[in-house]
Nucleic acid binder design. Sequence first.
DNA 1: CATTATTGTAACAAAAAGAGACAATAATAT
DNA 2: ATATTATTGTCTCTTTTTGTTACAATAATG
Lengths: 233, 233
Amino acid sequence: MNNRLEKDDYIQNISYDSVIFGFNGTQLKILILEYHNTGLFALPGGFVKINEDLDEAVKDGVSKRTGLENIYLEQYHTFGSLSRSDSTAMRRIIEESDLDVKDCEWMFGRFISVGYYALINYEEVSPKPDALSDSINWYPIDSLPKLMMDHEEMVAKALQVLRANFENKLIGMNLLPAKFTMKQLQQVHEAILGEKLRRTTFQRKMLSKDILVRHEKLFQGKAHKAPYLYSFK
Amino acid sequence: MNNRLEKDDYIQNISYDSVIFGFNGTQLKILILEYHNTGLFALPGGFVKINEDLDEAVKDGVSKRTGLENIYLEQYHTFGSLSRSDSTAMRRIIEESDLDVKDCEWMFGRFISVGYYALINYEEVSPKPDALSDSINWYPIDSLPKLMMDHEEMVAKALQVLRANFENKLIGMNLLPAKFTMKQLQQVHEAILGEKLRRTTFQRKMLSKDILVRHEKLFQGKAHKAPYLYSFK
DNA sequence: CATTATTGTAACAAAAAGAGACAATAATAT
DNA sequence: ATATTATTGTCTCTTTTTGTTACAATAATG
């Protein structure tokens, strides 16, 4: 939800919501909004303009919130159950905002929402709340606040699809800086898959895939051998 | 699109389209509609009623066309580009139908369409055209007619997701009769993956998965050893 | 009753993954 | 300086999985 929100500018009954993943070196986290004075937590979402591609709408919305361009985005599911829409929650959010409730009546109807997940480099992001929201913060995926409407289901499904796509799509690169150590790469895999991996087997497999370039060593000031840095080809 | 199509009954700007897969023993096929006197071919699709779950709308629509209940259905992608809607094609379809064009103006706008694929037992189906369509027929996936709008892209994407899901989800069962031979099972896999598989390796892998029950032999009247029949556990 | 084509399974080879061991090596402590 | 420490890169051996070939079993046919 950005800039103005006039009914005639937007396609009715359709919204999008985004599960924005980041990795802080240890944990997988996602960005969650809190709305002013409501105690309501939600995924960042928005509407689609009349003359705008769905993909573009999402790309713009996520870029505005993260300040990043060229974000890895994947559409993963569309949520269309009748019960998912909750007009009372939406009404509370609008009432606590600066917006005129009458102008926002259209938001209280039924919405079918298209879910996207994004993978971004945690360190490059400085999340900014928008007009409706109080704050936007990173939360580890295993300790999220209670989310409004069906947003918890949206997160669960996003994780499920992310995990299923992970092996095939070589997604790890989007969560890491350009250069990274083998250990960091392994930690991303572990955080996404939710399980520990064997160091030697993991390293052998990654090196055999012919997808990595080895660079200089990274001296971390620790009392042990320094690891090599790698990047994706 | 079923029964009456009055604007106020349906969510505006949202449709669904379905890629209905069947397997005739050799080839993977899909159901394609042809509209009266237009030469336009399309995937079976429809709209979502105001007070109906998206999943329900699709389930009902696909059931009506195939005459089957309990269909394996999977939502695979939502198509939301601006360029996908084509009002001239829709107008021609309506003009050639019994419907009043004025009542159908709402169908000529922009639609975001949710794609589902279905896997059904080819032999149990007798496809029936609806009010708008002339015929509905099976086409092998590698020799489809030219489809309207972005329906070819929809088919390509459905196949792509089907293949990606195939290994994990044990989907073959939905395309076969309750009892089948190992050879039939292999042929389904080959048709979906689009490649030949090794007989002995395939058989060993299937048997080791502990998902099959072996039944009596199937005597086909052929001059060789009769194969066992299997079903899924 | 031999012939035919296909099926079920065994046997061996090759490749991939699991598991452990160990030397190399940056910093730190002595 | 030198020993100590923890982690890294790599090697080896074992186990599991997959690829490949071979072959006996067996329904119909001639």
